[in-house]
Design a protein around this nucleic acid. Structure first.
Lengths: 275, 275
DNA sequence: GGAGCGCTGTATCGTATGTTACGTATTTTG
DNA sequence: CAAAATACGTAACATACGATACAGCGCTCC
């Protein structure tokens, strides 16, 4: 079974003429980067002419050069998705077998945060803190609990935090309360819910700032969102995992809380005295 | 110091107009693959026009699109050279707020699973699967969303799954429906809620099997529970983290689903046909 | 040693791609 | 509310890129 282009080359390099073989060796030497550049650059690096490169990729079975490049990119993408970073997750001491699902979940978190800067989180936290408006939270069929979780915490440190529950018609009626100063936090992962998209669009039209938690394929709501957090959700299971998004939500909660504390919000102190 | 394009984007995304921000978000979401494709494909993926993509890369400081792509490729090449992940999260500028929390969360998960054997999880999954009784789920003030999350998933693959919501008096009345064949899943971490403990005790007296998700200090409910899952919750934040428990819940959901599928439960097939 | 075949490079062509100019829509500001 | 500024998309444009035709060269085999 041949699954990568590198293997394909190794398989056929024996039957190639000299020029194409040089092309093959050049590609293998700095695999796969040189293959992503132009034919001219590739040919220059290999010390052959452009047509030789094209004949080379044709021999590998590709119809044309772009098709060859796409194939290389797909390979790269797959490689990046499942990072060969297993070494970072120490092979669980104590002999306890750690399930592939835990591995995948930890990888998802690392990947998610690799694309998520402190700056971005700080921006979102700032938006949640620094305003005189209200905060609304809502989620999809399986992600609504995440909205609830976040709402439960934020409501402690801030006034005017509302979780939108129940029927679509119920929250649609709440639109009337929303305006430019308000923030709407939406959780939406595959399969994306039309009802949420409709709601998001209407809220957007009213000038509401939307913060979207979604998966790496981006919910259609991303088009209306001011801030988008894309978390990895793939795990070896029948279900998608929201764990990475959950962790991001917790961090956001923490960031907001910290910022409010720093501002010396007397609400926090009052809260303590109420206990 | 800004070393990667991803950081560059994170740094400037705040100052970008809406269209370019969508471009930025799309790139980050599947970083960096979409940036290696053509402008047309990039623009289509982001849902904006080609010129917007070009203005986006121009704002990042590149003279033209090919230069931007070369830069991405160089970055990729460097990353592939040193398989060890270098820049998981650059030492966060301005007080390192995120990374320690992420590290703590990941540590929590590893610790949690170190004390949690596959056997234990399998036993709990089996108990949730192999019975003719009902499943009830409930949580505390901040953990109830986890109960909801689990209930939302289990209810899809099984009949008779109920989340207990609302007032204490409401669920107390549901006790009448509970018996020896039933399972009650409770989430309770510090500060433990008296109301939950009272409820758990009464359920226990009726012979209900209790599965408890709690923290490492164990909720008082542990004395009534048949199965106890103790997750680590400590993070450098004002709040405790439920992330580890969340992951355990997801794994349990996955295990139950897998087992039901293996049993060829026709419910799953019927479910598909109902879509 | 000569003829045939195959490989390779040069030069040209067509086209897909990035680029730019301009008009419209949207937002911001006084 | 009006006016200016900014942002965005449509459409025309230029170029750089991949593709192809053809000629030269070397190699092999008779």
């Amino acid at each position: 079974m041949i699954s990568s282009i590198a293997e394909l080359i190794a398989d056929r390099i024996g039957t190639m003429p000299a020029g194409e073989r040089r092309a093959a060796q050049t590609l293998i030497a700095s695999y796969p980067m040189i293959g992503l550049k132009t034919v001219a650059e590739f040919s220059a690096a290999a010390g052959v002419s452009s047509p030789t490169i094209l004949r080379f990729v044709a021999r590998l079975g590709f119809q044309n050069y772009p098709e060859f490049q796409s194939s290389l990119q797909d390979e790269l993408a797959a490689q990046l998705q499942s990072p060969a970073i297993r070494t970072l997750n120490p092979p669980s001491p104590g002999g306890g077998t750690v399930s592939p699902m835990l591995e995948a979940t930890l990888d998802n978190m690392r990947e998610t945060f690799r694309h998520l800067s402190d700056r971005q989180l700080a921006d979102i936290a700032a938006r949640l803190v620094d305003r005189r408006g209200k905060t609304f939270l809502i989620g999809g069929r399986f992600t609504d609990p995440l909205a609830r979780y976040m709402a439960a915490h934020l409501a402690v440190v801030q006034p005017d935090v509302f979780h939108l529950a129940g029927q679509e018609s119920t929250w649609r009626d709440r639109l009337i309360d929303m305006g430019k100063r308000d923030v709407l936090v939406i959780f939406d992962i595959r399969r994306y819910q039309d009802s949420l998209a409709r709601f998001a669009e209407k809220a957007h039209q009213r000038g509401v700032q939307i913060v979207l938690f979604t998966d790496q394929w981006l919910s259609p709501i991303a088009r209306f969102a001011r801030h988008v957090i894309a978390g990895r959700t793939a795990v070896p299971s029948a279900w998608d995992s929201s764990a990475a998004l959950f962790v991001v939500a917790e961090m956001l909660i923490g960031a907001v809380t910290r910022q409010l504390e720093a501002e010396g919000a007397k609400r926090i102190r009052e809260m303590e005295s109420l206990r």
